[in-house]
Each structure stands twice: as structure tokens, then as C-alpha cells.
Nucleic acid binder design. Sequence first.
DNA 1: CTTATCAAATTGTTCAACAATCCTTACATT
DNA 2: AATGTAAGGATTGTTGAACAATTTGATAAG
Lengths: 224, 224
Amino acid sequence: MSEPGPSDAYGETRPFRVRSSTAEWAAAILRQRVTEGGLAPGSRLAEDELTAELEVSRNTLREAFSLLGHERLLEHRLNRGVYVRVLSPADVADIYRVRRMIEGAAVRRADRDPAALAALREVVAEADKAAAEGRWSDVGTADLRFHLVIASLNGSERVNMMMAQLLAELRLVFHTMDPHALHAPFLPLNRELLTLLDAGRGPDAEALLSACLDQAERVLLATY
Amino acid sequence: MSEPGPSDAYGETRPFRVRSSTAEWAAAILRQRVTEGGLAPGSRLAEDELTAELEVSRNTLREAFSLLGHERLLEHRLNRGVYVRVLSPADVADIYRVRRMIEGAAVRRADRDPAALAALREVVAEADKAAAEGRWSDVGTADLRFHLVIASLNGSERVNMMMAQLLAELRLVFHTMDPHALHAPFLPLNRELLTLLDAGRGPDAEALLSACLDQAERVLLATY
DNA sequence: CTTATCAAATTGTTCAACAATCCTTACATT
DNA sequence: AATGTAAGGATTGTTGAACAATTTGATAAG
């Protein structure tokens, strides 16, 4: 995931200008720290510290902040700085409302893309393998990808982007929990959902999906 | 920037005390020009011209560009500048795919907010009045608001924002058409949709809405 | 007619300075 | 003691200039 850019460790010059802008490079680093828990929700991101650490100008850093702000990972308060977003219970409820709409519409469709179903099988296998080896963080990643592929059944590029953003937001609250307890219950459920989709049993799939989302929302809201 | 006072000759002057950032102020002006047709799709927005006209620095203007780019109203081509977005037929089709999902889910819900139904009645009345007075541009605005309220039946803040952005995008192609021919057919349809919703006839409303969206999409795609 | 090369114009990025705002601390008043 | 107010220090907001990189258009050579 790390692209060539300015100094990876310190003491390194940055002779190359990458195809992507410097701001996107900085944003990628910050995004990783936020989604992987290095920066806890509520943390303040001071411009001074980060310009020194990332060795980019203040303007570039602020552009990176802007990018992550539009992804709802960072929150920008006027004259007060930038903070890692804190999800409220209302936010979690809202996100699951949207997920029910998007994923519900996806599984209800009659024309299912065989390629997407193949992708689902692959992701499920990936999750099983990770679970067998105890890599529960990877199980979580696979779970998110599973639902991203579900959403893609809608066949809309805009829906894909909305879904990706929703799941990125959810990561903010995921890494405050135990990955095993959070994701283990959904492994068999995802597998069953896949078989229902494969069999063309739309209504059953919709009901199961709805139950999955309800349960996930309950688990997350229980942490508050 | 010599004097911050409201002494500019004409046009939009910067407020004496800006509560929001300068970048958002500039973005608001450009957004208005784009959504109201002052800037046609495909137009280039040169940095030199706009920094002189708006009297903001290049950095601030570029931040405004960034904001509108994330709203999909402007398109940023590397080393080539910023252009008013041009919607492709695929874009229109995708937007209507999302609208069918969002608005379809909205009318299918059983728990309808009485306040929202009242808002729908108000918007329909507003559209009728504008039509009677020949203000077809306002009819178009009312039509968009009608569907925004429909979407709000989902009860999700994020869905509301998604819908607002979709409709802003659609305005880009609306301006290239005759407002009367575009919006007149939907006046009675919206009224009928409202009565169906009021009567709690969800499935009928869903069918009618689906027909409305199909027709609108056909009309828009016919312009290409 | 095609291709190569150069110069002008525009955008990409960074920097340093100043202005505006917020937060803390200390002081004064009741 | 509680409340309100006034520095001041720290941080963010905005600007203008400078230079690098890229595109564009014109010109010249094959």
C-alpha cells in the first residue's frame, strides 16, 4: 500500500515527484493511522507536529486534511484544528440505516452478476483461511470486503463509493473492540448468505442480511 | 486585501465578519454559478481570472475548487486546470440507478413521517403556483425539492446529503434543456404520487415513482 | 504532411510572513 | 468563593511570491 514518495524513514530526501500528488501521499499515511487505530478518535492533529514529521508544507498537509475530512475520517473545526472523528451512537445507527438500504436493494435484485458471486466466494474463503490461522484482524477486513461486494451488486459506481466511505467510517469504531468477538459470529452467517444468493433465493437472503445488520448494529451500540 | 468592509462596487461582497472560512465563501459563489447555469458544463475556471475577481489568494481558491470537486460539480485534470463537470450518459444512468434505490426504499417504508407528508403537500402547492404563473424554472426547483423530501422519508441524514448531491449533479444537465418541456409532465405525476402516499398505498406509489424516474431518465438521455 | 524543438502560459508545490481566533492565566469586582 | 474581564501566548487562517513541472501552440526541419 505504501507508495514511493517523500522520505519513508527520516533522513531521506525526496527526489521524485510521484504521479499522485504529495497531498494524497500524506493523506494515505494519515488514513492508515486512523483506520488502523494508531490515531484514536478524538485525537487532535496539530499542523506543526505533522509538517515536521511528514516533511511536507503546511498547505500540502491542509490539503491532505481536506481529503480525509471529505471521507468523514477527520473533523475540521474552524480556528480550532483537525480532530479524528468520533462516531456517536446516532452516527452508527445512521450508517446501519444506509447499509440496510444499500445492501437490501442489492440482494433483492434479480439480475445478479456471476462475477460478483465469484468474488463473494473468494472473499468468504479468504475469511475462513484467516480465521483458521487466528488472524482476526484480517477476518474483519474480509468481512468489510464481503459487504462491499454485496453493495456492488447494485451495479452503480456511486453506490460503490458511498459504501466504501461508510465502511471506512465504521472502522473508526471497530478498532476499539476485540476483532474476534466482533467478527467471529458473522463468519457462518456470511457463508449462509452466499449460498442463499447462489440459489437465487432473494427474499431469504434479504431476511438473513437484515438480521445480520441488526445484530452488528446492536453489538456496536453496546460499546457506548 | 486593503479594506474588509462592504465597499465593493457590485456583485457578491465579502461579509464584514465571516463566520465560515474564506474558501467556503468562494466555493459558495462558484457553486451558485454552476448550479444556476452561469457557468456552462465544460467551461474552464482559470485561476488567474478568479483570484482577481473574487480577490482571494490562489491557495484559498484552490481549496474552494477542492470543495466543489468533492461535490462532483467541478472536475480537476492534472496540470490542465479545473472544469465544470460534463455529465456523460453513463453518469445520468448511474444517478438514476441510485435515485431508484433511495427513493424506492423511501416510499416502501411503512412508518411515514406526517411532517414529511405535510412538507410534500407544501412543495406540490408551490410547484402548482409557479406553473400557473409560468415560472418554469421555479417549477423545476420545486420538483427537485419534492424528491428531496421523498428521500428524507428514509430518516437518514447521510441519505439526505447523498440525495442533495445527486440532485445538484443533475442540475448540470438540466440547464441545457427547456424547463417547461422537462418539468411540466411531472406536475400531475407528483400530485398523484402524493395522494398514493397519503392513502398508505405503498406498492402503488412505488410503481408510479419507478415509472416517473424511468421517464425522466429517458428524457434526459434523449438530449445526447 | 509529419515530426521535433522551443518558448509562453498555466498549473503544482513550497515557503515565510502576517492576521484572526481561541485558550489559558491572572486579575479585578461583587 | 464565584463570576466576569483583560492580557498573552499558541494555533490556525490567509496571503503573496517564488520556483518547478507540465501543457500548449508556434515554428522549423525532415
